[in-house]
Structures are given as structure tokens and as C-alpha cells.
Design a binder for these strands. Sequence first.
DNA 1: CTCCTGATATGTCTGTCAGACATGTCTACC
DNA 2: GGTAGACATGTCTGACAGACATATCAGGAG
Lengths: 187, 187
Amino acid sequence: MSTTNTTRYAILGLLTIQPMSGYDLRKHLGESLNFFWAESNGQIYPALKKLVADEWIMPIKTHQRGRRTRQQYALTPVGRNQLKKWLAKPPHIQPPRNELILKLFLGRSAPNGALAQHVKAFKRRHEDVLGVLLNFRKTIPKDNARSADLDYWMLCLEHGIRLRQAEIEWSSVTLTRIASTSTRNRR
Amino acid sequence: MSTTNTTRYAILGLLTIQPMSGYDLRKHLGESLNFFWAESNGQIYPALKKLVADEWIMPIKTHQRGRRTRQQYALTPVGRNQLKKWLAKPPHIQPPRNELILKLFLGRSAPNGALAQHVKAFKRRHEDVLGVLLNFRKTIPKDNARSADLDYWMLCLEHGIRLRQAEIEWSSVTLTRIASTSTRNRR
DNA sequence: CTCCTGATATGTCTGTCAGACATGTCTACC
DNA sequence: GGTAGACATGTCTGACAGACATATCAGGAG
């Protein structure tokens, strides 16, 4: 099996920023990272247990004033090393499963107007995300003035922005073409 | 559970083009469709069985001269209707799992030069795919002169092309930025 | 004519994943 | 003293990825 349980490494990576609890990880993964890395909630806690067992991370107790005690985790030297080794390996490519495009491909069998609806929704969603990302681009550099991670984060952001722009442009073109196609093929 | 077993519908969709065997489906899925829809080989035959049991498709015997008898399948009216209903539903969005971007995000922990290697490979791969797609754009319209599917296929192709172009452009920009980043952060 | 190679053809199996669902705790406010 | 809502930690099922297994047939090499 060449599937590498990437969840472990995503967690490991986040812990390079600072020690966190499972809940923190979940929030991080659900927010900024979510634009290019979706983690399944159900994987996080089992993965943490496994990582502790392998001694890639270690649990640390944190007593916060006025807040419940949370189980936090920190990288061990072993974990840091494993992460580095993983980062050196060529990235695994996610097999594409673009359901919108599949439906478009089979468009001849679709009920009238459905495809246009799908593409419109697709476009709107990407426009929303693009808005968020463009806002990030403005605010992140100020908040994290000279974080060592900043340069890398901006590259990821740039990727997200360009991809969304391409999707939006394609959507526009496609919408006009769909209109003329359905006119031509009308029974 | 909201996961919809999309494999069934991908198969159903391909059978609208013409009756096919499992092997034909596998080839189709491994070739043209593969650019936006990757199907796991292991799913095809079980899915076919299920589809037959549900009477969405029916097995037909084909005796080809000089070739082994293959089990082919054709859509039933029920199947055609189910496909149509599915096409009308909003497409499910694949959760993103872009391992390259994840590695870039964690770039600070990566060994020297590794990221640049990854991005270069990423760029090369997309350039190769773009070449294939651009070639498709030239040849497909001639081969399938007035297929009812042609218009839809071209839309999918266009999507693939634009996305790849965006990836390639981002790669170029990123490569120059990585170079200057690693210079600045050198110890 | 027999062996071998490679395309044809049909599957199985294991670990990983998606994401809905379950459960309990603490704070703040009424 | 109750309860709404954030905080926090999990479990569970069906679907999926993709490596692996197996058998048949055609055509060429010896």
C-alpha cells in the first residue's frame, strides 16, 4: 500500500507552529487550511493517539486560568525529523473527482436548465472563496509581520487565488456557451 | 450518509454513449475521463453487479468474430431515468487534498531545495497534460463531427486547459519566489 | 508447432477517508 | 437554578484508492 496516512503529517505540520489540542487542530484545519487541505474530523483524535504511541508528539498538560484543562500536544525531535523526511518526498497527487465536470460531460442526458444552475452555483461559490482569499492577502502580512512561515503561506494563498480566478473565468465562458448549445439542440 | 456512490452514475453515464463491457469502461475511465474523473478499478465490477441487480443496466451477450465473448452492458429505461435525476442534483464537491500546497505551507520545515523540486515536477506534469488536452482540442471535433455530446465535451476540455494554464503560471511565479525566499532565509 | 509475451478481460482485498452522529463540560446570562 | 451556546473529544459506516490476483487469447520467435 502506498497510501501514506497524510493526516499524521498534516497534524505534525500544524504543531510546528505551536503546541495545540485536538480542538485547536480541528479549528485550524477547518479554517485557513481548509482551502487546500480538508481533514476529516473523525481522523484527528485517532491520529493523535497513534502519534503519541509512536512518540512523534508528546502530550503536555496546560492549566489555563478560568478555562478547562485541555490536552495539548507538542512535537518531539523524532516527530520533527519524520516531518522533514516526509516533506522531502514527492507529493502524492489526489485523483480528480470533479462531479460538476462529470455532469457536464454527460450533459446531453441532463434535464433542461440543470447544468446552467450547477455552473452558476459553482461560479458563485468560487467568487465567495476568492473574496475571502483576497482579503487574506491584504490582512495576513500585517498580522504576522515577520513570521518565518509568511512567505510560504503567501505562495499557497496565491495558488488559491489564481485557481479560483481560472474557475470563475471558465464559468463565465461556459454559461454563455451552454445558453447557445441548449438553443441549438432544442427539440 | 450523504455520500452517493458516484461510481454508479459515472458508469451509467458512459453507457449512454454505447453499450460496453467492464473492460471498455475501465479503458474509457483511464483515458479521456481520467483528466477530471478518476475511478478506482476495484469499484467497477462490483458496481456493475449492483447496477444489474437494481435493473438500471442489463447484460447483453455479444459474440464477436475472432474475439472472446465479453459481457457487455446496456442502459435500461430505469437507469436512464435515474441518471437524469442524478444530473439534476447539485454536484458534490470533492474536499481538497492538495499535498503539494500542504508541503509548501509547511515549507519552513522542509529540507533545502526539496520544495523547488516538487514545484518543478508539478509544473512539468501539468505541462504534459496541457499538451495532451490542446491536442484533443484540435482532433476531437474532427473525429466526432456532429456528435450530440461534442459541445459538452468541449466545455470539459476547456476547463481542463484553463486550470492547467493557471497551475503552470503559478508554478513559474512560485519557482522564482522560492529561490529568493531560500536565499533570504539561508543560515 | 510450441513457447512466450503482451493485450484482453474480470475480478479481490486492505487501509484510508468523508462526514454524519454522539457525548460531556464549562461560562455566561437570565 | 436553569439553559443556551461555545468548548472539547470522540465513534461509526459506507465509500474509495490502488495494489494485487488470475485467466484467456493472438501473434511472433524459435
